[in-house]
Simulated assay, not measured.
Amino acid sequence: MAARPDVPLDMLDRLREVLSALPSCTEEDAWVGVRWRVGSATVAHVFGGEDGLFRITFRAEAEELMAFERLGPPYFRGEWGENVVGMLLDERTDWGELAELLVDAYCIQAPARLAARVERPA
Rank of each mutant, 00 (worst) to 15 (best):
V43P: 05
S24W: 05
G39L: 06
W80N: 00
L65V: 10
A105G: 09
T93N: 02
G86I: 07
V46T: 03
V118S: 02
E79W: 00
G81H: 04
F68S: 08
L88A: 09
F58Y: 15
V118Q: 00
D104H: 03
P8V: 06
M11D: 08
W80T: 14
W80K: 13
W80V: 15
I56V: 14
R16D: 14
L19W: 05
V34D: 04
G78R: 05
A62P: 14
S40R: 15
V38R: 00
E27D: 08
L101N: 02
A62W: 12
V32F: 14
F76H: 11
E63H: 14
A60Q: 12
A30E: 01
G86S: 11
V7Y: 07
L19C: 03
D94G: 05
E17H: 12
C107R: 07
T93W: 06
W95N: 05
G48E: 06
E64N: 15
E79Y: 00
S20D: 06
P73S: 02
V18K: 00
V103L: 04
V43A: 02
I56N: 01
A21W: 15
T26G: 10
T42D: 12
D94R: 08
F47C: 02
M11K: 09
L65C: 05
E97S: 08
D6R: 07
E61D: 13
M11I: 00
E64W: 03
T93P: 12
F58R: 04
V34P: 13
E17M: 00
F68D: 00
G48K: 07
R77Q: 12
F58T: 03
Y106C: 01
D90C: 05
A116W: 12
N83I: 02
P5G: 01
E64H: 10
E119Y: 09
L65I: 08
A67G: 09
F58H: 04
R70Q: 11
A105V: 08
R117C: 13
F54Q: 08
A116L: 09
E100G: 06
L65R: 13
L65P: 14
A115N: 05
E97N: 08
L9R: 12
E79C: 05
A110I: 11
G81P: 13
D104S: 07
P5L: 00
L89E: 08
G86T: 04
L15W: 05
M11P: 01
E100Y: 03
E82H: 13
G33Q: 14
W31R: 09
G33R: 07
V7M: 15
I108D: 04
L19N: 04
G48N: 13
E91Q: 08
A44E: 14
H45C: 10
L53G: 02
P74F: 10
A41S: 12
A115W: 15
L15R: 08
I108P: 13
R35T: 10
